[in-house]
Design a protein around this nucleic acid. Sequence first.
DNA 1: GCCAACGTTGGC
DNA 2: GCCAACGTTGGC
Length: 153
Amino acid sequence: MARQYWLLKSEPGDYSIDDLEKDGTTFWSGVRNYSARNLMRDKMRLGDRALFYHSNADPPGVVGLAEVCRESYPDHLQFDKKSKYFDPKATKETPRWFMVDVEFMEKFPRMVSLGEIRDTAALSDMVLVNRSRLSVQPVRKAEYDRILKMSKT
DNA sequence: GCCAACGTTGGC
DNA sequence: GCCAACGTTGGC
């Protein structure tokens, strides 16, 4: 299958592009929304690319790129009573939440802010603009390419 | 900190 | 299955 493109949101105070650059790879835990989970569990494939987005930031925007380096497996934090992502209804036999691993690709020379994305007609169909709350979302190749280009200029 | 949008829960 | 109540996200 052709490579797919995604957008992953993270609050930089929680986990930023700098954290990913330092770690090299990370597990994308803590997704607790069914639509987002289904995309990760059922659609994300090794080698897919993701725009790394800083939400709840000032300003919010896309700050870099990551690559999916492991396909979905159960998110261990759902079993951890001390975690804020603990889910009492999840069991090891029937886990409810999944995650993928992602690898650092690059940090943009500059952020492509949500404001700029909103101001760009070619990006007006992005899920980010139309259904802002989804924390894992599909991105079209043309949109991905456009944002990448904007980050270099 | 506010609040609109929207997702989830649970009673019926 | 409906829908009111409630909780969360995330821009501003």
